[in-house]
Design a protein around this nucleic acid. Structure first.
Length: 523
RNA sequence: CGGGGCAUGGUGAAAUGGUUCUCACGCGUGCUUUGGGAGCAUGAGUUCCAGGUUCGAUUCCUGGUGCCCCGACCA
């Protein structure tokens, strides 16, 4: 949408142009506005690629650390494999290769040359075998595992890689889908199917734990239908989150690969009985898409809202002063407060920049999603108090923004204020999770009639729908065309709310169905 | 890859076949200010690329490139 009317060249409109589009008006625009206001990322001049700015990267680093701890705790180690995959390796697993074929960047030359004054790939430097820039690393990793695995004693092999991958997507969206993105991919090898399946389920649980307890995003765990499965996988599990516009976002996947890839790469091991057997495999990954999920789950019309556990700055301290003497005293106090908070384990930053009005700093830090702000002014020095302001308060319908602002600021005695920071951050973490859960619940329906289904995803704006399903792949596609919805997953039984459990009949075909599936529009 | 649209300082926009292209935000400098986006003064910075039409093109034409929207694609 191009808001030409909004941008008349007068002062007011120009000042407003830096404001964030309300979520209710245009969710896509709001999403981009938040990313810009928070300084997370921007489009690169390189087609379809994203530049992650420091604040965005700092959030990703926090995610990395939390995830990495969990991977280590479950026995995994990090390693690194090449960016380039020889085409012959890539094509060893047929379904995998054809699944990714349409979105691969391919390197064909290794040298440039000036021809007619123009620098072009040197025709004489053409590679004998093209190199595929990894869209995922199964094949390059398994070709290496062949050398690493001979005996059951070499198993399980539990490796994770932090890397970038390239998928030549037609249409891109910051964080959610870009030509190049950052991720982690785990690739494990096991002696038995049972063990590999356990690993697949275990890592999905790790992702769900991370999503809910760190990102404060409630997710639904389940398995993908055949049509949505990872190319080459026997089973794909995923966690699905609901964004504020009611759409589902796949936040992480864990695949059971069976022996497909070990056969493709010819990786056998000798078991205890001395017999040769193909290895059982899993792979699992999450990407910088999670940053997009974070934005679309918690943020508001003032900008980014970060769960404290992922906030690079959890508390910002802003000194307020009118002259040099006040400046010296308030900055000094701000630094003392910061040091005390740091000792309590709080990520804290003092914003003592001169020449910027305090209000401007508040807007800036709110836009960046900092959970708590402490203001230190001359009055606080006199009274021995501090002003603590929260990034969000529980919304009260109809309350004016000005009233909300007052309600979320509190002047507290100094010691009390400092002691309140850690518990407040913890409470905010919990509140975000609870809020997201409530938002999801309010947009979730249990539906039995196809008319209700159409109405829900039409005029009612959609969300998650629990419906019985017994259709085939073609009928799945019909649902996609008719309602722009898809089966997000076939949930594990404990993921289905009580009111949606039990057997029934398919919403489209009327055929008997054992359990309901999760339907939604998706990103 | 098909259909449509757009291309003007860092950003968002105006204007024009004819002197030196306009405005706001942002940026630099100085003074002043600082408990919710300060003010004044002053300064720097712009017509995507290549051809063509024309006395003269940022404007019109052709081609290229890039971006946006719709489809296709995206498990």
């Amino acid at each position: 949408m191009k808001a030409t009317d909004m941008n008349k060249p007068d002062n007011r409109a120009a000042a407003e142009s830096s404001a964030i589009t309300p979520r209710a008006r245009d969710y896509s625009q709001w999403y981009l506005d938040v990313i810009k206001a928070a300084g997370l990322a921007e489009h690169s001049a390189v087609r379809g690629c994203m530049v992650v700015r420091p604040h965005g990267y700092a959030i990703w680093e926090k995610m990395q650390r939390e995830l990495d701890d969990r991977f280590k705790a479950t026995g995994h180690e990090n390693a690194y494999f090449p960016l380039f995959i020889p085409l012959s390796f890539f094509s060893r697993e047929e379904k995998h290769a054809s699944g990714f074929a349409k979105e691969c960047a391919v390197v064909t030359h290794h040298r440039l040359k000036a021809i007619d004054g123009e620098i072009v790939p040197d025709p004489e430097s053409k590679l004998e075998e093209p190199l595929v820039v990894r869209p995922t690393s199964e094949m390059i990793i398994w070709s290496q595992y062949k050398n690493w695995i001979q005996s059951y004693r070499d198993l399980p092999l539990l490796i994770n890689q932090w890397a970038n991958v390239v998928r030549w997507e037609m249409r891109t969206r910051l964080f959610l889908r870009t030509a190049e993105f950052l991720w982690q991919e785990g690739h494990t090898a096991h002696a038995t199917e049972k063990e590999a399946l356990e690993e697949t389920w275990r890592m999905l649980d790790v992702y769900a734990d991370f999503a809910e307890n760190v990102m404060a995003v409630p997710v639904i765990k389940g398995r993908k239908t055949e049509g949505e499965r990872f190319a080459g996988a026997v089973e794909t599990l995923s966690i699905e989150g609901m964004m504020q516009d009611g759409k589902a976002l796949q936040m992480g996947t864990s695949h059971y690969l069976g022996q497909n890839f070990s056969k493709g790469a010819d990786v056998k091991f000798q078991n205890k009985d001395g017999e040769l057997e193909f290895v059982y495999a899993t792979s699992w990954g999450v990407s910088t898409r999670l940053v997009g999920a974070l934005i679309m789950t918690h943020s508001d019309d003032s900008g980014l809202v970060l769960p404290p556990r992922l906030a690079p700055v959890q508390t910002v301290v802003v000194p307020i002063f009118k002259n040099d003497a006040e400046r010296a005293r308030t900055v000094d106090e701000a630094r003392k407060v910061a040091a005390e908070l740091k000792a309590l384990g709080v990520a804290v930053r003092v914003d003592d920049r001169d020449g910027i009005m305090p209000g401007a700093k508040y807007y800036e830090w709110e836009g960046k999603g900092v959970p708590l702000r402490i203001e230190v002014g001359p009055k606080d020095l006199e009274k021995g108090s501090l002003c603590v302001a929260r990034r969000f308060v529980t919304e009260i319908a109809g309350e004016a923004p000005e009233a909300q602002r007052r309600r979320r600021k509190a002047f507290l005695p100094r010691a009390e204020a400092i002691a309140s920071i850690v518990p407040t951050l913890e409470a905010m973490q919990k509140e975000l999770f609870a809020r997201a859960g409530a938002a999801r619940a309010s947009r979730t329906r249990v539906l039995d009639k196809i008319e209700d289904y159409g109405k829900f995803f039409g005029e009612e704006g959609g969300g998650f729908a629990w419906v019985h399903w017994a259709g085939d792949s073609a009928q799945e596609e019909e649902m996609a065309k008719r309602f722009e919805t898809s089966i997000r997953c076939v949930p594990f039984e404990d993921q289905i709310p009580p009111e949606a459990r039990g057997e029934g009949s398919c919403i489209l075909t009327g055929k008997p169905s054992k359990q309901r599936v999760l339907m939604a529009k998706s990103y």
